[in-house]
Amino acid sequence: MLILVLLLWNVGEMVYIYRVFRKKQTLFDDRYTKTMCMALSSISSFVIALYLQLLLPLHPVTYFLPSCAGLWIGWKFGSFMKAPASLNGMYNGALGGIMGMMFGAVLQNPAICNIPITEASFTSNLVSLVLFCAALHTLVHHFIRKSLTK
């Protein structure tokens, strides 16, 4: 439930900043667009892939969905730039998606990484790390919104 609320919050934030970028696309220079798309695609696809990995059940159909969502986010953010430079956004999005999937898998089953976590502290561990990731996403988006108004 908490993860669903956080997913909706982060997706809302991401869609808002995507619409702002789409509207003001012609005002920015190349370097600004490249840096912001790199930052946005890597952190957004990381967080979204982490939530999807935690929410979806383990099934062959939904197995590659988090990394594909990361790739799609990177593609959408990369489409602000010209064709060869949009590979940058796609690369960062795919990397963030795969990393978020790995992080979610380790949080679901800490024995993969030989992490000594007992059953009692498992849920609080998961919840605190997910809240921390949501806070990171909010912080990065706050800095990017602050740079838009400058």
């Binding site: 370097r31 600004y32 840096t35 912001m36 790199m38 930052a39 890597s42 952190i43 990381f46 963030g96 990393m99 790995m102 992080f103 380790v106 990484c113 030989n114 992490i115 990731c133 990171l136 990065v140 800095f143 990017i144 740079s147 400058k150």
Partner: peptide
């Protein structure tokens, strides 16, 4: 610059979330 600030912040955050996993394995 403000853009180098955002780039360094994001890269450090993503690598820092991944690093302890490598250390455990």
């Amino acid at each position: 610059d403000h853009e180098t600030f955002v780039a360094g912040l994001t890269n450090g955050a993503v690598v820092g979330l991944m690093a302890p996993m490598i250390g455990t394995v």
